[in-house]
Write a protein that binds this DNA or RNA. Structure first.
Lengths: 259, 259
DNA sequence: CTAACATTCAAACAGTCGTTTGAAACTAGC
DNA sequence: GCTAGTTTCAAACGACTGTTTGAATGTTAG
């Protein structure tokens, strides 16, 4: 058992900090151990020594931030429910229990800063099966608590339907948080030069009404046979589907012949 | 200039098909050229020969499907607007112009099948800057057309606000489409065994009301100073933030000593 | 001071990465 | 049948991957 912090080795901390920056910027596969140790100004072997490997470092970094985040979220939700007594919480309140700890974290450079929000969004959509298993296993209870709260807040939404809507909500949230060039895209769409990396708080305050309205939306008509598609199927869109154009790709062989 | 299709070489097609499956399953970085050529039962050099490299193969595969998708989407949108005349389209109609071509594509195994929808969702959140640049550059005009349509459908939503809401919408959509274990997560949350890989059409029919309600949501109050946070700040959540627990990680060094 | 331990270090490990090579196998036109 | 061009092939390229090694250094306790 390694006495992790007799003299509180700065090496592990440096690695965790570098891991947050680099994994965020390049993803898990795109970040090498050598990039990490170089950025942390630390010997290559430190990754294996302190964290047992690259995946260990990744999970440690993630867990450190996420544990704190979920702890705070649940504490806030508990506090809200204690105040509300038997009354169900409003969607706004539940969302605020989700958002406020994330905002606090984003504003505290010592706990990851704004970068962590983007990392979190990135992690939610990462393909890696290990990561997905790690996340869902570790935080499923926390998510379930919030689902219960929403279920009480939205008694008209069937549990199955609610699960889907929470899924959609997580998607909008994760995508928004992960948005690397989201700012650029928004700016381009709105021809608005002033759309710089806006305050995270403003962003979430825009997102909240969107999500709440979505959660409370009228129930979908799941019966009937493909009404949406049938509307569109009436030969409206014919005539525009033409020959496939060859992929705009140059073969290296041709270039090699010249060079 | 390589005469791409004198005898219509099956090699390129095999590679494209394998690329769709593998890039979807493991992401760009997680898929090697050797995996691709092995799955396609094709020589390793074929990637460079036919597509100029791994990234060329990836972009060709993406472009082939996405060009067709956007073509169909725009054609459908045009058709809707032609029928509506000067009247603005409803949100439902515009969404259907977005969804229906995606559904058609998902149901046609010859054009990618359902896997492509997941790949598309994955691509939207991929960290790779090259991919993001490629996508936004190639399909910005198409997205702008849809934004205009939504702007006419939602005259009360300011352009800037609308840009954000479209961003949120894309997020929910991409996340939903990319959902690898979404089905598992939903099943776990709802204790519902029957939540298998549901029909894509049912999924989108659930998503539509969620998105439409979000788009039409009342405008957020962006003034005021942090009302959400201030509500939560009243010492409600104190007392639950305790000592950080050591990251659950075993160092290899300890294990090595034993072995 | 010394024994016991934790940590750091440069170097090397066996693999895999994407890409390139030059020759062999094809497929046409003549 | 021959030639010119396209496509496939096994093999190798150098660079990079995550991890391990054993010695060197630092730190604490007796």
């Amino acid at each position: 058992m390694p006495a992790a912090s007799r003299t509180r080795p700065a090496t592990a901390e440096r690695l965790l900090a570098a891991a947050e920056r680099l994994f965020l910027a390049h993803g898990y596969d795109g970040t090498s151990s050598r990039m990490l140790t170089a950025a942390a100004r630390v010997n290559l072997a430190a990754v294996s020594y302190h964290f047992g490997g690259k995946t260990g470092l990744f999970q440690s970094m993630l867990a450190r931030r996420l544990d704190a985040l979920h702890e705070e979220r649940l504490a806030l939700l508990d506090a809200y429910e204690r105040v509300a007594g038997t009354m169900p919480l409003s969607c706004e309140r539940i969302l605020s229990a989700l958002f406020v700890p994330a905002l606090r974290l984003a504003r505290d450079p010592k706990r990851g800063g704004a970068d962590f929000l983007r990392l979190l969004g990135r992690a939610y959509v990462d393909p890696s099966p290990e990561l997905r298993a790690f996340l869902s296993e570790r935080y499923a209870p926390s998510i379930a608590r919030f689902k219960d709260a929403f279920a009480r807040a939205l008694p008209d939404i069937a549990p199955r339907e609610l699960s889907w809507r929470l899924h959609f909500m997580l998607g909008a949230l994760a995508y928004t948080l992960a948005g690397t060039d989201a700012w650029r895209l928004i700016a381009a769409l709105s021809q608005d030069e002033t759309a710089k990396p806006t305050d995270d708080q403003l962003l979430l305050r825009r997102l909240a009404p969107f999500l709440i309205a979505g959660l409370q939306a009228p129930l979908p008509d799941l019966a009937g046979e493909d009404p949406i598609v049938s509307i569109a199927d009436s030969r409206l869109a014919r005539g525009a589907v033409n020959e496939r154009s060859a992929p705009a790709v140059t073969t290296s062989r041709g270039a090699r012949r010249v060079a």
